[in-house]
């Protein structure tokens, strides 16, 4: 079982939200309404780049009132696999893409008494949807959003319009720092915090939360990451009898897909556990980059997550 249902979409609008972020409006090619999604969800966007298909996960920003479209925000980066570059350079209005069904690995803790949404840079995309949902529910929430400057803050105007005083912006050009220790004190008992942004920011916020005495169960983060690059290696599938080479700029999962293997996946970010595969043999050292396996499972050397983890060595033999 691989990623499941694929929905053909047409790019109906592209907005240059900031110098480096574009918002793409994806309209269902069928004319049928797209499924509703729960705030915090992402879709995997499939881009046909010549012979290969690039698959990148993007958080959903919103869904048109009539269900005809979703929007996603894409930061232009030099990601080694080229998904972001493809979206910025090759995709135009009218381009056809495919997306997966929405998957939510970053849910709002519904029984929470109050919600603190913390975003850094492009991490604002799921936070945007969560804020909308909390507003709709009449829940109590605050948004804290760190940007380089006003021009580099995607969706700042919209967020301010929708959420007014609930939004606090931190501009690094004005030396404004989103300091966790300043926003955490005084929050009512039963408050939950959600953070999405660069890994360094997530780590700092989570640590700041613990430092402020918050239980870890009240601190939520989007562990979403692009597959890290690394040294090339060979992957052999013991059951299928296939061997393929994993280039340094692609993930193990991507290499298997390129070799025509219908491997399981869901989030492609090391969070969901769907692509867990048993390791038969490894000539080298497993490099685990996921947020899913336990310490024991990692040290056993018996399991690997195809989407983000790799081998530092010669050959990896998988039970596939």
């Amino acid at each position: 079982m691989s990623g499941g249902v694929e929905i053909p979409v047409v790019v109906s609008d592209i907005e240059q939200a900031t110098p480096t972020v574009r918002r793409f409006r994806l309209t269902a090619a069928s004319g049928q309404p797209l499924p509703h999604f729960a705030a915090g969800s992402h879709v995997v966007v499939m881009m046909e780049s010549g012979e290969r298909i690039i698959r990148n996960a993007y958080s959903l920003v919103d869904r048109a009132e009539d269900g005809s479209s979703y929007s996603i925000g894409v930061l232009k980066t030099r990601d080694s696999r080229g998904g972001s570059r493809f979206m910025h350079e090759r995709v135009e209005v009218g381009s056809r893409l495919k997306i997966s069904m929405p998957v939510n690995l970053f849910p709002v803790f519904a029984p929470g008494r109050r919600h603190l949404l913390v975003a850094g840079g492009i991490g604002v995309t799921p936070i945007y949807a969560m804020a909308d949902e909390l507003k709709r529910q009449g829940a109590d929430y605050e948004i804290h959003y760190a940007v380089r400057d006003e021009a580099h803050g995607a969706f700042v105007g919209e967020l301010r319009e929708r959420h007014g005083d609930r939004l606090t912006l931190y501009r690094s050009d004005l030396s404004e720092v989103l300091a966790v220790r300043e926003i955490l004190p005084g929050q009512p008992f039963g408050t939950h915090l959600y953070v999405c942004g660069p890994q360094g920011m997530i780590d700092a916020v989570l640590e700041g939360g613990r430092e402020a005495g918050w239980p870890k169960e009240h601190l939520h983060s989007e562990h979403f990451q692009a597959p890290p690059s690394g040294d090339p290696f060979s992957a052999r599938l013991a059951k299928a009898g296939i061997t393929c080479e994993v280039r340094s700029d692609q993930s193990l999962l991507e290499a298997l897909e390129e070799a025509g293997v219908d491997a399981p996946f869901l989030c492609r970010g090391g969070a969901c556990g769907q692509c867990e595969v048993a390791v038969v043999d490894a000539d080298g050292e497993l490099v685990h980059n996921d947020h899913y396996l336990s310490e024991d499972e990692r040290s056993s050397g018996r399991k690997i997550m195809l989407c983000v983890s790799r081998l530092k060595g010669r050959e990896l033999v998988l039970d596939l």
Binding site: G4, V5, P35, S100, M101, P102, V103, L266, C272, G273
Partner: peptide, 11 residues
Amino acid sequence: LKFLMNLQQGR
């Protein structure tokens, strides 16, 4: 439980 946590819409 692991299986259901990854249950997808439409499936």
